[in-house]
């Protein structure tokens, strides 16, 4: 249970302070790192054609959870952490193509389950993260 007498947060006061680097550099750096982690995960846990895409699902759900935790907390680090790293760690294009290919190849149930798990899991994870980050 969260302490209801927590001291007021000060992020709002620091949000407007100028970042040390331009946002474009932070986004590029965070995106490169997030994408590298996703690539490493896809290499370490490859999913065969016709199988449930667990790797992308896990990355997207974890990314949604961390986005919930991070939003409103990271202040001026948002371009690096939220837009860059988490944006690069998660992917919508892979989700869409994996689901479409599963469906096209006749794995209708797997495709539907994948889309449902991604959507419901993403929403639940983001809510959990928001609650944990409060």
């Amino acid at each position: 249970m969260a302490c209801i007498y927590a001291p007021p947060r000060v992020e709002h006061a620091t949000t407007t302070s100028s970042p040390r680097w331009p946002p474009i550099v932070a986004v590029a750096l965070g995106g490169a790192v997030g994408t590298s982690v996703r690539y490493a995960a896809a290499t370490a846990a490859p999913v065969a054609i016709g199988r449930f895409p667990w790797t992308t699902l896990a990355l997207n759900v974890v990314g949604a959870l961390l986005a919930g935790v991070a939003v409103g907390r990271v202040g001026r680090w948002a371009p690096l952490v939220v837009t860059g790293f988490l944006g690069g760690l998660t992917t919508m294009s892979a989700l869409a193509v994996e689901a479409d290919v599963l469906f096209r190849d006749g794995h209708h149930g797997l495709a539907l389950a994948y889309v449902a798990a991604s959507t419901a899991g993403g929403v639940a994870a983001a809510l959990l993260g928001l609650r944990a980050g409060r």
């Binding site: 997030g34 990314g63 837009t83 944006g87 998660t90 919508m92």
Partner: peptide
Amino acid sequence: CGGFTTFSG
């Protein structure tokens, strides 16, 4: 494509 699109956002 992976870096361009986002789920967390």
